[in-house]
Design a protein around this nucleic acid. Structure first.
Lengths: 162, 162
DNA sequence: CATGCACAGTTGAAGCATCAAGTGTACGGT
DNA sequence: ACCGTACACTTGATGCTTCAACTGTGCATG
């Protein structure tokens, strides 16, 4: 079977692929264990916690967390059941729905963020070392440019301290 | 809300997190569209295609693709239904099951690999540029060391030319 | 103001992943 | 030979994600 990448490229990609398998699993495991949250649902809460009024239209939130509206809608339904998020119609525009972080949701984020941030630091930031954080930033920036040619991406932050 | 990472670290992490959302989705989309395969199921086929005799014990295969035995078992069941993989008992050891890539499975890999490799090159290798492939290799290597402290990881290659 | 179209969002079904439990095989000790 | 334990899986249920279809709102056009 032909080699489509050079040996060096292949090694780099194989390692990258392994990280793509293991890192999300590790971060999910920490959040699930300590907070009963998915990385994704945590991200949703975290983004809301930074929004003005802790409130955002669903579609804006969806683009912030890089998800489909459908996926977000399902997740918000679950978060609503736990009373961490509330849905409200928008006065200005009849077809937008606002997602608002409740006080309980805020408390949840506050309780969850430090542990998650620590895990991110341990597994990523400290792992690559202070010298290489800039390289990581540059590399992921280049890849993002390919993935999101329009540059339409929002920050997609894992939020406060993450 | 306190900042648990410095501004530089945070930016690097947010970009990284965005890549972790978008890149697997992009690669999955290509494979799904062109071959009706998941990235994971393709990886399983690809690993088998490189094994001697195109055959491997389930548990070895699982560690190669960094998955639980449970997940692998479900996926192999599906691949078996499509006649791409066959399960066979092992003569030497009554408790191992061998997974074997069938001829049809081999053909499937051959048909699928080039397109997938091209997408990997486009989105990752060419995106980071030849100068930075070594950096990518180093960074992912460091992260892997944290994720897999025992060093028990297999190569986790995306195989031929990927 | 009627028609058509695009946008914002929801819903239900189907597929895949994860978890907990179960089966059966090897192996160590007694 | 017997027992307990650890290993190599498999299976079924549950939950999340994705996909396709649907509702309802705004907006442009004639």
């Amino acid at each position: 079977m032909a080699d489509w990448l050079t040996a060096d490229e292949q090694r780099a990609w194989r390692r990258t692929a392994a990280v793509f398998t293991l890192l999300p699993a590790a971060l999910d495991a920490q959040l699930q264990r300590d907070a009963g949250l998915t990385q994704f649902s945590y991200l949703v809460l975290a983004m809301l916690s930074e929004a003005p009024g802790r409130t955002m239209p669903m579609s804006e939130l969806a683009s912030m967390v890089s998800s489909s509206l459908s996926r977000l809608s399902h997740v918000v339904s679950r978060l609503e059941k736990q009373q961490w998020v509330a849905r409200e119609p928008c006065a200005d525009n009849g077809r937008v729905t606002m997602a608002r972080l409740t006080d309980a949701g805020w408390d949840k984020v506050v309780a969850t963020a430090p542990g998650h941030a620590a895990e991110v630091r341990r597994l990523v930031i400290d792992a690559v070392g202070p010298d290489r954080v800039a390289d990581l930033d540059a590399i992921t920036g280049e890849i993002l440019r390919r993935l999101d040619p329009g540059g339409r991406m929002r920050a997609n932050p894992l939020s406060q301290g993450c």
